[in-house]
Computed example of a mutant assay.
Amino acid sequence: MKKRKAMRKAEKIRSSVSQGITFNKSAGQHILKNPLIVNSIVEKAGLRSTDTVLEVGPGTGNLTVKLLEKCKKVVACEVDSRLVAELRKRVQGTPLASRLDVAVGNVLRADLPYFDVCVANLPFQISSPFVFKLLLHRPFFRCAVLMFQREFALRLVASPGEKMYCRLSLNTQLLARVSHIMKVGKNNFRPPPRVESSVVRLEPRNPPPPVSFQEWDGLVRIAFIRKNKTLSAAFKSKVVLDMMEKNYRVHASLLGMTIMEEFSAAQQIEKVLQENEFAKKRAREMDIDDFLKLLHCFNSAGFHFA
């Protein structure tokens, strides 16, 4: 028994160490080691020889090297100085070195550089904030091919009525066309993560939908607090009513409108939902067009979410 435990511990240590580097699993450092998967990701990105590619979390450079062979330039964003040194060492003295630009630091805290395509094996814990930083970035890029935890990827591509459909699904699909490319098993990484992964392709909608994302997200956030509840029930929450009445009064003041003493936000909100046949609808069943219509109805009645 003790011998088996010792063997497992030794194997765990070997799996988390490569070329003298101990990978930090808590920081999401899982290096993609399967060259077939690496090649497939690069192929799905549809790179051109003139492209600048943004890579986040390059690790030891297995994916970076393949990208450098296909494009004009790779901007690799890495927070771990040990891996930065390993990456630079890997291309040192080769023709690829002049095409690599390493940005050291947290990609969420810095402005993104110009790029045509984004390709990344993302640290899992930054998946959601990075997706929206990416999709709200300007100028537009052509596409992104990104590795996520399987469950997160399934949420991105979920459709109305499906179990995984959520606010993340709706917000992402408002801003981009999303497709699931392939599943990637945990044994394709070193060290192996605890969960399975998937690769997803995002293509920004250009031009973007004619709607304020802050307004949109404010509405969607309320609707998905309890996605199985009717919208009528969701908008009866005291917190929601107080927020919407405050926003109503602020916008009325900006427009120089007079609000009657008998004004009731709760009654007006219910009126909007009833008259436009949304009162009995549930967020889990509504698509982008439904939410765009609902947002227009609220805005037309003077209610805003940002």
Rank of each mutant, 00 (worst) to 15 (best):
L135V: 03
A233T: 12
V56Q: 05
F124R: 15
T50K: 09
K72A: 03
C143R: 13
R109F: 15
N24M: 13
L100K: 10
E151K: 11
C297Y: 04
H251V: 00
N106F: 14
L83E: 09
K280T: 01
L136T: 07
A158C: 05
P204V: 01
S212M: 06
N121A: 15
W216D: 10
I225P: 02
V79H: 14
L112Y: 04
E196Q: 10
H180D: 06
K238R: 11
K229A: 13
Q268W: 11
I41L: 11
M1C: 05
A153K: 09
L175V: 12
A144F: 04
L146D: 07
Q173W: 09
L136A: 07
L292T: 10
E43V: 04
D242C: 01
R201A: 05
D290S: 06
S15V: 10
R88K: 15
V17N: 00
N206V: 12
A76D: 12
T50E: 09
E277W: 01
N121G: 15
V211P: 03
I225G: 14
K73C: 01
K236H: 00
R82G: 13
P192C: 08
K163Q: 06
T64C: 01
R177K: 08
N171A: 08
E245N: 02
D287F: 07
V131N: 06
A85V: 02
L202E: 11
E277V: 11
A76H: 11
L96R: 07
T258V: 14
Y248Q: 05
L254M: 12
D290L: 06
A103V: 08
T230I: 10
V211S: 00
V145H: 11
D116I: 09
V17C: 07
Q173E: 06
N24Y: 03
R282H: 12
G61F: 14
A76Y: 03
K280Q: 04
E277P: 02
R109G: 13
F23Q: 15
E261F: 14
A76F: 06
A283K: 06
T64G: 12
F132M: 03
A103Y: 01
P209I: 08
R284N: 06
K12I: 03
V199Q: 15
M147F: 05
F115V: 14
E275K: 05
A266H: 02
V157K: 11
S128Y: 04
K227L: 01
A97I: 02
L294F: 01
V38H: 11
D289Q: 14
A252R: 12
N228E: 15
H304Q: 12
V17Q: 06
L202H: 06
A103C: 10
L67E: 08
T64Y: 14
C143I: 04
Q268R: 04
Q274D: 03
R88Q: 15
T172I: 12
P58K: 04
R221F: 00
F132T: 07
F189V: 06
K33A: 13
Y114P: 15
R221G: 15
N34I: 07
Q267G: 07
D287H: 05
F152N: 05
S300A: 05
F291V: 03
H304M: 01
P113E: 05
P193E: 15
M286D: 13
V74I: 11
V117T: 02
K12E: 00
A234T: 04
G302M: 04
R226T: 14
A283S: 09
E196S: 14
S98D: 11
K183E: 15
L202F: 13
G105H: 08
V220W: 08
G218M: 10
F278C: 01
